[in-house]
Design a protein around this nucleic acid. Structure first.
Lengths: 214, 214
DNA sequence: GATTAATGCGAATATTTATTCGCGTTCAAT
DNA sequence: ATTGAACGCGAATAAATATTCGCATTAATC
């Protein structure tokens, strides 16, 4: 950021600019935004924009950062349970609680991607030209922690060695399958089917053998 | 295409332009290509370019089309086996052949994404601004046919009802996990680990119960 | 209320880039 | 060889857009 806003009105303007960026991204696509559009939408002039942001990219970065924080918080608010259903329902396999958690996270993901007029959708689509690392780190770290706690509390047959690999695969599989599904116009499958399928795949993969021999 | 090339030299030029497009995409990224760059790389003038292509987009479309055909052919050449190992090795589960096939396809995918200086990688990254449907259809159709034949020959416990959903999920999961892995600079995981993990996940999902009750 | 720093403005600038068009060249058919 | 069609050229055009800078306005400080 070129200069720091010291007065209230400038701080408001910075906020307005970031929100305007969000609006422009949903309306014009990430490639379609222009500094003039953003400034106009925010109700300020282009010149003012450059007083607090080095360039267009910096604006988008600020937006991504803001959204990353929001997602991080929302994830923490998810009522995930840290134990299997075994103890309370006596299921044969200790995966009932796991399945519930996975399902909940996937539905959370769908809700997110469908919210804000497709803002998240557009940003994930363009992940390769954005500072995605931070966001993916947040997601993967969240899932890592959750999985670790989960598998510790319910000591599985074997503690999974390659958990980070599994989390990487799962996080990307789920996220991009959802994005591809939503972005696909022809509705040959329902969102419920996809959710169910993803859940089954993920739970199966996470419950699988810790070390597969080839 | 604005005009059809009727003489040999113009047909050669069209080819050269498409190849030049490929080269520019790898060198400058899909967003970085310009008509001038492409023309220069192809050794022709910008004017000539517009005699056979309506615009820049048409050039990229032609490239994608060409690559789609190449992939389609290469896929057909893959030595996939259409039966389990049961009959010959007497395995407990009839998934040994399946695992081999899945593994082969995933390695094929990695080879593809690593080939041509990342051309495919760049194109998949930008799938949202490309005519991706045709390519994805080819992939999914191939997998559909393969799976159907496979599961028919080795009549599983239940014929899988929601096969198209599973194929959709698997195709996108595998493809984008690979792309994300390759595009990620920090090498915390080996390509073998990813391949192994993806294979395990896919085989597990495909071998799972046909209808999961909730 | 005077002074200074912070803020805000937007026309002007500079650059990039897609696309066109008139003219010269090459090819193919007779 | 002649003629017409196909081809190829690239300077010129037009439009979009990121970024700057000198000046006007507002807030904070004394």
């Amino acid at each position: 950021m070129r200069k720091k806003p010291k007065q209230k009105r400038s701080r408001q303007m910075v906020d307005a600019l970031i929100e305007a960026t969000a609006k422009c991204v949903t309306e014009l696509g990430l490639d379609g935004i222009t500094t003039h559009h953003i400034a106009e939408t925010a109700g300020v002039s282009v010149g003012s924009l450059y007083q607090y942001f080095d360039d267009k990219e910096a604006l988008v970065e600020a937006l991504v950062d803001k959204l990353a924080n929001e997602i991080s918080e929302a994830l923490r608010r998810l009522p995930l349970i840290e134990q299997t259903m075994m103890e309370q329902a006596g299921g044969a396999e200790g995966t009932a609680g796991l399945k519930g958690n996975v399902n909940m996270i996937i539905q959370f993901g769908f809700a997110l991607l469908n919210s804000r007029d497709g803002l998240y959708l557009e940003l994930v689509r363009n992940w390769h030209s954005l500072p995605t690392d931070r966001v993916m780190d947040i997601l993967q770290q969240t899932f890592m922690d959750l999985s670790r706690v989960y598998f510790l509390k319910n000591y599985q047959n074997t503690p999974i060695e390659d958990l980070h690999v599994r989390i990487f695969i799962i996080a990307n599989s789920v996220m991009f399958t959802m994005v591809r599904y939503i972005g696909q116009p022809r509705m040959l499958m329902s969102q419920e089917e996809i959710t169910k399928g993803l859940t089954e795949m993920v739970v199966g993969y996470l419950s699988g053998p810790g070390e597969t021999e080839y």
